[in-house]
Amino acid sequence: MSDSSILPVRGRAVRPSGRHRRPVPSHLPPEAPALVLATLGDASGVTAELAALIRGDNPQIEVRLASLGEDGKELTSALEDAARERPEDSIAAVVVPLLTGPHPVADRLIAGAVASSGVSVTVTESLGPHPLLAEALHIRLAERELARADRMRLLNVSSPVDAVVMVTVGGEGAAAEAQPTAVLLASRLTLPVLVASLDSAPDVAGAAERLRGIGAQRIALSPCLIGPEADPGLASAAAARIGADCADALGAHGLVADLAARAYGSVLAAG
């Protein structure tokens, strides 16, 4: 932390290179940056549950939760509050977007909030792609009996479905970023998995048509979403249009909380 060249420029969002996968140290100094979870939608419900999970597993971290709203002002206030409690020459906060992939609206709001705060902040990448996301998606499918719960057993038993459409929001960029997670999920399920977007191309209907073209009749929809970033009925409506069953969104899953904490831990390790 003594080399000023590794510190972010005051008032600018800095995204560390590489994927953020380091665990959080068990002990942190009092001046350690706050972990600020930035969410689209209200800072309640699923996002509050995730914050509580992170606090429970990592009591050494100061965890704050901020809704981006329409103008990012709540995030700006959270960053200013964190800075008042820390030395001027230190990073006040690590902002972790509660998103599985890039989201143009969230990215713009976070960048604006950081700039408005005038605070030294590091903004991490979104939580995906990552094997833990694939594992959580597998669990959500299994909870709806749309996948075998244990991929290591019962390999000769037929799967509940023939293929999966994994859906995202955030435009074509988010869908492209989700491809590695889809590959990991396909490996876990030993089934074809295609990525589709709920708000752009590639669309769900097109993905379903491609899967049926290779013989898949029973298709499941797997939302690669935490929840607040999309209307709660969007995925289920898309599933109904293609005659598919739909798993639940990731929600306040422990693996999502773990990924958010690891994003924070990676910033500390890089410093």
Rank of each mutant, 00 (worst) to 15 (best):
D248I: 06
S17E: 14
A13I: 05
D203E: 14
A176S: 12
L68S: 10
S2L: 05
E80P: 01
S26L: 13
T122M: 06
G45N: 12
L141N: 04
D107M: 05
G41F: 04
A247P: 04
S2G: 02
V96A: 09
D107H: 07
L141E: 03
V121E: 08
A208S: 14
D248S: 15
D81A: 15
P25S: 02
P8M: 06
A92H: 06
L211V: 02
A257C: 01
R212T: 01
P87G: 06
S159V: 00
R148I: 07
A249F: 10
A252V: 10
I219C: 02
R86F: 05
D245Q: 14
G170F: 12
V165W: 02
G69F: 14
I214E: 01
R15Q: 15
P30K: 13
P102W: 11
P104L: 13
E229P: 02
A220I: 04
E49K: 13
P180S: 08
L133C: 10
G227T: 13
V63Y: 04
A178T: 07
V123E: 14
H130N: 15
A220C: 10
A93G: 12
L259K: 03
A196M: 07
I139V: 15
L234H: 07
P131C: 09
R108W: 07
L137P: 07
L35H: 05
D89W: 11
L185W: 00
E145F: 13
A32E: 04
V24D: 03
P23C: 01
S222I: 03
V267T: 08
G254V: 13
P87Y: 08
L155G: 14
G213D: 00
V114W: 00
R12M: 07
L75F: 11
L268T: 09
S126M: 01
H27C: 08
R55H: 04
S90E: 15
P202L: 13
P104R: 14
A237N: 08
S159D: 11
C246Q: 12
